[in-house]
Design a protein around this nucleic acid. Sequence first.
DNA 1: CTCGGATGTGAACGTTATGTGAACCGGGCA
DNA 2: TGCCCGGTTCACATAACGTTCACATCCGAG
Lengths: 226, 226
Amino acid sequence: MEPLLLFPDPAPPELAQALDLVGYPWKAVADERAATRSEPEDGWAGGVVVAANEPEGAFALCRALRKRDLPLEPLLLLVSGAQLGDLELREDLFDDFCLYPFQPLELEARLKHLFWRTGRGTRPELVEYGPLVLNLETYQAAIEGRPLDLTYMEYELLKFLASHPGRVFTRETLLSRVWGYEYYGGARTVDVHIRRLRAKLGEEHANLIQTVRSVGYRFGQSRWGL
Amino acid sequence: MEPLLLFPDPAPPELAQALDLVGYPWKAVADERAATRSEPEDGWAGGVVVAANEPEGAFALCRALRKRDLPLEPLLLLVSGAQLGDLELREDLFDDFCLYPFQPLELEARLKHLFWRTGRGTRPELVEYGPLVLNLETYQAAIEGRPLDLTYMEYELLKFLASHPGRVFTRETLLSRVWGYEYYGGARTVDVHIRRLRAKLGEEHANLIQTVRSVGYRFGQSRWGL
DNA sequence: CTCGGATGTGAACGTTATGTGAACCGGGCA
DNA sequence: TGCCCGGTTCACATAACGTTCACATCCGAG
């Protein structure tokens, strides 16, 4: 079996021990570079990321691992009780989470359940909204069947927006969620990308992205019901 | 929002309370027959099944709910630590599990993540008062289902007022709470915004905002008690 | 009934956020 | 090395927005 990716490096002893006990091979990495460097031939079997001690590094790693051509999955996040509230805005960065410190039995059960449910391919590889379709595997986008020629950043931005239809995001939020937390640049960058997206969507569909003055941008219509 | 199915009936007090606190409606059922009988029009929003106390009944219910034409989803299972080992054989009966007894925060986070990944969307944060609805995530407002086109300041003002129905606020208070503490401007600004809000609410609902002469403004009916 | 302060109203004004076109810059590739 | 592509930044145009003012109207006190 391919090893699991562990963060941080070195891995917390009790985590390493728990995995050893139930027979999961693993390898600890300190950051994205290390993750790429020591990646096995057939890719990682999955990931266990401890966010309780070094949240920034942990979330940065998750984001990087999710953005790859073949996103790392399944990804189990270990969080402290105090971090539970922060998870809401990072739903897409992990597949399941577990309180840290953890019970070995619970960790094992979660890993088993994760492998069971991701093994059946329950993950959607498409993001759809009305006439828009994003194929996450091939990095292609289309509207009404007509292919869109998007650049990397345009694709990422559209993917993020279309994954959260109806919701308003400030430029700062978009910069941190799409560009990355450590990004340090002008907010007007977002405007320009929005404009190009609207242009490529075509006049007919430009209104898929709406401006909410003095707040930010919204994709699609709002959700009134549940 | 449609209610969650709870097992057993009656529901454990701490579970009922935790769900009430975060605003999930629920209905407890004792078995499959009760589940079918009291099922809402649009189906259950999901299920929370406590397996810690009555494992046989709980798993039987899960099995029944999964076998239906429209399987109940998502289903969160609450298990004791001693039951963790048994889960392996029942992977297909639930979508996620949580240790019981549970931390309310963890329960909330798991429900949110479940709703997110099963695509049923998390409940939007709403401020409601009678016919008025404010969607805080999408920055949209509606009255009697009809969308209101509000500017940023109008929205912020209405949000503040509608969040404190029945209470009277002086113009100075509104300026400091809505516009910001350091704001330095004329009090008549408030009047103008109130007028525009009334206009947009429509003649029928303009009285949602009442003038309290020589004091300020009040939203909704006055509260006699408390 | 009358007076005066408080509030409603319409319009004008100044500010600010956003749209827009183009220049800049840096990395990959020939 | 020099070109090309994409991402970023800048400067300017523009329209939306918030604020202010002058005046009209309302309401309660006396």
